[in-house]
Nucleic acid binder design. Structure first.
Lengths: 348, 348
DNA sequence: CTGTTAGCGCATTCAC
DNA sequence: GTGAATGCGCTAACAG
């Protein structure tokens, strides 16, 4: 297969020499801004480049140009559908701008997050996008904030997805409004006695959704008693555990379990079923996010649609647009959510 | 927030000057191989670096060192759980090696794949990992092959996940054996009349799984009639459509629908339900991959577990290990699969 | 339009 | 041990 055992990639220098032109001409032919190169020479360069399998060294270009074509994305967990959809959006949008995306996972660990930001900063990415709900008051906030500030001072753009700190650019999804709308819709279906399964109190997203839901209920004159709020991990197993606990202590009239996200809701479905009840009929269930799976579980899950892919798109755009120079907190782009009613919440 | 309006990041040069040492000393203190630097000076450098928010320019390091700390990953669709799990594995393993992962999506388009490989090659990544089943005989294979060959010749490492072409390094999952094992297990449960819902004939993965399944059946003396093999898109909707078609023409004794992957199986579940039948009881269903959702659908889906995250891990390791120099086709690392029986295939 | 030259930020060989 | 000088691959003035 490999007859030529060359071990070092062809350099622009090689192309220039081989094509019998100067370095500059070769450079201009292959990348140069406005084509101010004789078409004949240009072709010759292009041909030799192809023949030599020349591939421009992006690192060298970055050093010479003083700017990269890279964007960095930080998520909590790549395998999580929530983040993978956002990532898909970011990557697609970046691709459209001919930018390369480098990605890392924090595993929800604030220390790792800081460490990764430090490393990624070395890439001199054009933008640094942080996705993932953060605890409301992390101790290391200061260090992260300083790091991000330094990055921005050096010309980088930080975009926060679904979080709002340090007065940085952000792309929000309106958790409160979405949750409120869900509450209204459920009340409209005839539900009156609710139980909410949510994440830790310090999780921003969880807190916002709970608050919004309560607001929605309040508008209908319904109050959510304290004991109706169950806290657990923001995961499928968390949803299962919390719901199981609820069932064990006795439903006590509760008609529906509302989870702070879909994966928790799916856990709730399983818990209900494992308790010998039929979700939807015996106890209704609703979630949040409308991940693809929501449609495929049985009964199909009522949820609040969050355009995650679009969120990713937006984040990238927001990172790039220089509009208004630095008007970070001004227009905290918000994407709208939408209640999707399905079989898991039949009309009562 | 930003009092100092510095617009350019601190350079190693700045650190050296500010610390009153030479460039070389600064470099050695911050990265240098073996610590041959006076501890006092070293500390001084470290401190000034911290004070100046110095962050080593990775591009510059790459140019100077002639090698990067980057790995590139190409998948078909980041949001697809199959790929996002693999990606999670790659990223985690890369992180352990202090490598940065850049990621791109081909959308299953061979032309884009080629284009992306070209672009990514410019990064001079240490390794290039390609995930995603490929059509058995793509026309542009030649160009891709040449590109990958050039990349390898230049010192790069290509690793193919779940595909095997050009005699490159590969990490396989034993689709045939897994499918055969599934067949055996299902026969053991009492099933005799099968229908298979699979992807296009040219999809490698689909083809292997079908072949393996037939082998397994053959061992039990069962033959799969041609009309029992339904082809459709390798997606949820494809599974739905194929199963719907099957139901429409009449089950004709078929006891179970076996899908080539879980998302198709989930589509089958819906199709069966929409036809007024109860999956599991009226028609059994089995899938392949054991994506997380498989556990959460109802009835829970029988499947073949594929350690996708591990697949990602392996791919990265395989990309890095220089063991045996070039023994590409020698040890085509294969990860084992495992049949997982669940409620969707009750004993008959 | 084309070629020469001087950096970009950093690692490293070589003298001291 | 430390510093000065050279070069990595490429771009961008700068002259011809």
């Amino acid at each position: 297969m490999g007859t030529s055992e060359r071990t070092t990639p062809a350099t622009l220098h090689d192309v220039a020499r081989e094509a019998g032109v100067s370095l500059a001409t070769a450079s201009r032919s292959l990348n140069g801004s406005t084509r101010k190169v004789n078409e004949e020479l240009r072709q010759r360069v292009l041909e030799t480049a192809a023949r030599l399998d020349y591939s421009p060294n992006l690192s060298a270009q970055a050093v010479a140009r003083g700017t990269t074509t890279t964007v960095a994305l930080l998520v909590a967990d790549i395998a999580d559908p929530y983040f993978s959809q956002i990532a898909a959006g970011v990557v697609a949008a970046a691709d459209a701008e001919h930018l390369i995306v480098t990605m890392a996972a924090t595993d929800g660990d604030a220390d790792r997050e800081l460490e990764l930001v430090r490393t990624l900063r070395g890439q001199r990415p054009r933008a640094l996008i942080l996705a993932g709900s953060r605890a409301i008051d992390e101790p290391s906030d200061g260090a992260l904030g300083a790091e991000l500030a330094a990055y921005e001072r050096a010309g980088g753009r930080v975009v926060l997805i679904s979080r709002n700190e340090y007065g940085l650019r952000t792309v929000q999804l309106d958790n409160r409004a979405g949750a409120a709308a869900l509450a209204t819709a459920l009340v409209g279906l005839g539900y009156r006695r609710f139980a909410v399964v949510t994440g830790g109190e310090r999780l921003r997203t969880a807190a916002d959704r709970l608050a919004g839901f309560c607001e929605g209920l309040a508008e209908a004159g319904i109050e959510l008693p304290d004991e109706a709020v169950l806290r657990a991990d923001f995961t499928r197993d968390g949803g299962y555990a919390a719901t199981a606990a609820l069932l064990e202590r006795g439903l006590d009239g509760v008609e529906i379990v509302v989870a702070a996200n879909d994966v928790m809701a799916i856990g709730a479905l399983s818990a209900i079923r494992d308790a010998g009840l039929e979700p939807g009929r015996d106890v209704a269930v609703a979630g949040f996010d409308d991940i693809p799976t929501a449609r495929d579980v049985t009964p199909a899950l009522t949820s609040v649609r969050v355009p995650l892919v679009e969120l990713g798109h937006l984040a990238l755009r927001r990172a790039l647009d220089d509009a208004g120079a630095d008007a970070p907190a001004d227009a905290p782009a918000e994407v709208a959510t939408e209640v999707v009613l399905r079989a898991s919440t039949p009309r009562r």
